[in-house]
């Protein structure tokens, strides 16, 4: 039950770090480039429109963050407990945002 000593720690070498570095720099270039292009929008309902630019920007940012977490922060080779901590963090982050938004989104419903 004690989550201790999971064998020899896995050491990620410089080669992987360099690859990740270039991937991150490429991601940065991509996201800047994408912001200068109008990617259009998705008109879901008359009142709800999803424009693609922020979606793409956040998707690229998230994949960059995932790379940092997995490789620079070694989470790929970390214990389940670390994964649990990360998932808990993301979960509570989303809880705060989504539950607060549940108020803001629906505040005007029925008042039009």
């Amino acid at each position: 039950m004690n989550e201790q000593n999971e064998g020899a720690p896995h050491i990620i070498g410089p080669r992987v770090y360099v690859v990740i570095l270039f991937a991150l720099l490429a991601g940065t270039a991509l996201t800047v480039a994408a912001s200068f292009v109008d990617l259009g929008a998705w008109h879901l309902t008359p009142t709800l429109t999803i424009s693609w630019n922020p979606v793409v920007a956040l998707a690229i940012a998230t994949s960059k963050a995932v790379l940092v977490v997995l490789y620079f922060m070694h989470v790929r080779y970390s214990s389940k407990l670390t994964w649990l901590a990360i998932v808990a963090g993301i979960f509570m982050f989303l809880t705060l945002i989504l539950m607060t938004l549940s108020d803001y989104v629906s505040r005007a419903w029925g008042n039009w």
């Binding site: 800047v32 960059k64 922060m73």
Partner: peptide, 25 residues
């Protein structure tokens, strides 16, 4: 400390996307 530093990096990655790149076209 490395974990802390990478975390700061991640925050910036999002701040950059959210604050600088809202709509440039």
């Amino acid at each position: 400390f490395g974990l802390y530093w990478h975390f700061i990096d991640i925050v910036w990655i999002y701040l950059f996307a959210l604050l600088y790149l809202i709509s440039r076209h």
